[in-house]
Each structure stands twice: as structure tokens, then as C-alpha cells.
Design a protein around this nucleic acid. Structure first.
Lengths: 143, 143
DNA sequence: CTATCTGCAAATTCTTTGCAGGACT
DNA sequence: AGTCCTGCAAAGAATTTGCAGATAG
């Protein structure tokens, strides 16, 4: 199902499904819900296949992000991170734990009101991105 | 008033107020509400004083951010930007125009509900950061 | 005086690009 | 066949760091 959606998207954009891309995609699927850096993808990919270059990883992640198979964000620390984004009109609300660094996600979308407010002011809002910084339940000193 | 607050903070942290730091701070004050990159600060600072190195700019911005005189964020594109943050418990809600790149700010704070929701789940939220991507009124094709 | 700060240039880190060969369809 | 893709290594861009001399307090 996931693969079907992805290869359809690749087809539509005339991108080929090479062995390297397959490995990279498999890494992203295995890590659904996580946010991997290019480097992390590279390391996991080499574990699976060994003949793959870092440049290919960057190029592939970039391509996949451009057709919305992946979602690309930059986090404090200056590195880009990618996650699988099967076009479920994903709302990117992250909670970053300042203790353990774990990144989890919030599902709700309470921002709609704010967007409407802004559009009334003449803005055209296309996307948003929300990050919370704090402690996850495991690291919360109060728990 | 602004200067008083700042030099007090510097004192408390045993940071010296050198001519270079004064120039950099002046640049930040002159650009209140804007979000400058290290490079932009460097260029403006050289306009004012001419003998100042980029390394000093980076080191100064970093120090000032560490004592909350500045607020540091990273934007899509991978560059850090700084703005004056006089501890007004500033809510960092940015609107980034995809056309002209202009960054404006939203004042409202509609996120409180979401934070409460998360805290009920065991999280401890310390800060948040919200970015909207779209077109500003000037660039909105509809206007 | 002495710890902190500075400029310079070299080093790092992350990401992109040019190129010649290789592989999908 | 012909376009797209890959690995390598070199280039770029942003930021950091080592060092010897300068300076604030």
C-alpha cells in the first residue's frame, strides 16, 4: 500500500525507482514517525546495502521531498530532518524534548482559527509549522 | 532603558561591554522587530565601525542569545537569525512570505489550549515556536 | 594585572555540484 | 538508445575554533 502510493508518485514525476532509492525509502518506512537526518539515513542505508553514496542520499531525499513523499524540516542545531509524509495532509506539530532530544508529534489542529485571522488581514497561508520545546513525559521532572 | 537592561545582564554574567559588542547591540536595537542573520549584522556593524571580524559577530550573537538578550531561531534555508528579545516573554510566531521572504510576526497566542492539552498528557512545555508559510498581503496574488 | 575579548585564518560541518561511467525503461 | 542516476571527490556556505596579541574592569 505504502509502496504502491510511492511508486505511483515516482512514476507521475518520471523519477526512477533504483535500488538505492528503494533502500532509502525502506529506511524511511522502517522509521515512520521518526525524523532522520541525511546522515542517519545514510548510515542505515549502508547497513542494508553498502554501495550507496552520501550524495545519492541527499539527492534522493531532496527529490522525495519535492514530490511530497517526504517532509523536510530544519531543527535547532542546523540540520535538516526528513520523515515519511504520505500526503495525509500531515500537520507538522513537533514536541522536542530538551532532555532526551526525542521528537514526538501532536495530532490536533487548533491553528485553523489563527490562519483564518491572518487571511482576513490579507495574508495567504499555505502551510504552518509548530514546535513545542519542553520535557516529554519520560523526562518531565514532575513525573 | 534598553541599554540599562542589557548592561545589567552583561554584568550579571561577567561579560564585558566592548566597543564591538556595543556596535552589534546598536545594530540589533536599530533593527528591532527584524530577524537578522549573522552576516547581515556583520555588514551593518562594519558600516558603523569597520574594524570588527565576522568571528566576533558570531561569538557575540551567541553570547547575547545565551543570556536572553537576543532570541535565536533557525529558518528554512538553514541560516540562524537573531532578534532583540528583552525578556518580554516574547511569543515567536512568524509568518514567512514565500514570495519576498519578508518575516512578520503574529501577536496572538492561541496556543495556550494546546499546551494545556499536552501538559495533561505528561509533557512539560517550556516554549513554543510557530511559523506560517504563505504570502504576505503585498505578495498575495489575490490582493 | 589578569581574565576576557578580538581579528585572522584555518578547520568543521552540512549540503551541493561537476563529471565520467552505469543503469533503468 | 537516450535520459536519468550514481559515486567520487571537490566545491560551497555557514559557523566554529586556535592562537597570539589587545583591552576592559
Amino acid at each position: 500500500m505504502v509502496w504502491k502510493t510511492i511508486s505511483k508518485k515516482l512514476d507521475e514525476n518520471e523519477y526512477r525507482l533504483t535500488p538505492q532509492r528503494e533502500v532509502i525509502l525502506q529506511v524511511m518506512i522502517d522509521n515512520r514517525g521518526k525524523h532522520l537526518s541525511a546522515d542517519e539515513v545514510y548510515i542505515e542505508a549502508r547497513g542494508k546495502s553498502s554501495n550507496i553514496g552520501i550524495a545519492t542520499v541527499y539527492r534522493t531525499l531532496e527529490k522525495l521531498a519535492s514530490i511530497d513523499v517526504l517532509y523536510k524540516t530544519i531543527f535547532e542545531g542546523g540540520k535538516y530532518r526528513y520523515e515519511l509524509s504520505l500526503g495525509e495532509s500531515h500537520q507538522h506539530h513537533h514536541i522536542i524534548c530538551l532532555q532526551c532530544g526525542h521528537i514526538s508529534e501532536v495530532e490536533e489542529d487548533l491553528l485553523h482559527n489563527l490562519e483564518i485571522h491572518l487571511e482576513k488581514q490579507g495574508y495567504k497561508i499555505l502551510d504552518h509549522e509548530l514546535k513545542f520545546y519542553g520535557y516529554c513525559p519520560q523526562c518531565n521532572p514532575k513525573n
